[in-house]
Write a protein that binds this DNA or RNA. Sequence first.
DNA 1: AATCCTGTCAACCGCAACCTA
DNA 2: GTAGGTTGCGGTTGACAGGAT
Length: 262
Amino acid sequence: MNTSSTIPKSSGLVRKGAWTEEEDVLLRKCIEKFGEGKWHQVPVRAGLNRCRKSCRLGWLNYLRPHIKRGDFSEDEVDLILRLHKLLGNRWSLIAGRLPGRTANDVKNYWNTHLQRKLIAPPRQEIRKCRALKITENNIVRPRPRTFSNNAQNISWCSNKSITNSTIDKDGSNNECIRINDKKPMAEESRHDGVQWWTSLLANCNENDETAVENMSYDKLPSLLHEEISPTINGGISNCMQEGQTGWDDFSVDIDHLWNLLN
DNA sequence: AATCCTGTCAACCGCAACCTA
DNA sequence: GTAGGTTGCGGTTGACAGGAT
């Protein structure tokens, strides 16, 4: 972030481009004083000639405490692969499971290191890949959002009240989520959420139990075939139900997922 | 030594979801 | 119900560094 040597680009009144050390200090002081959030006020409060997005990004990706820099460990890479297989490009969710890593970091790492490996494996491995049976995997795409107190009665996605789901397989062997339209108690719903993850993982493991256990090229093709299922998108909303007010609650379910992954 | 090529990553942009009046 | 404002996400871009030629 501190690349004051670079020539700042400017368009109109709002500064763009790399942040200077001085700007970093101003932003840090502002956040320390007023806390995170209210990003539209941050540029004024901090005395920065930056747009609120730039301020937010600067804080979240670089100035926030405990940001981890440097190479990803094997464990981290393994986890990224597992979660990406499960969640798709939900970088913020994946980053949420990697302490000190930001969504931008994870996304960049995926695009530069992992995606390249997936798309262009070494020639000698291509033949191996072809020989493998390729299975399709559905990707869960929860839409992370913040929820106010008012929002707790709102279904996570805009679908009707979806409360219980099971993973099902139709005749074509495509997995889908069957939504049952009933309203469980809060505890029940959380349990359902855990069950949902459990079922999902069980299904994933059924397809290729060790596909992401060992990061080798001959295991990668199955990761390439990801389909986004809108029904799954609805299904995951089951994880957040009555009495669950936001991602804090959801993270509990993610914790279960985490345990299941390990 | 100069130039080109490629990889990396910080930062920006557009957009959908959400909030509030 | 809705319009305007805000937030956060993911995709993309562009500057820079280092290696190859």
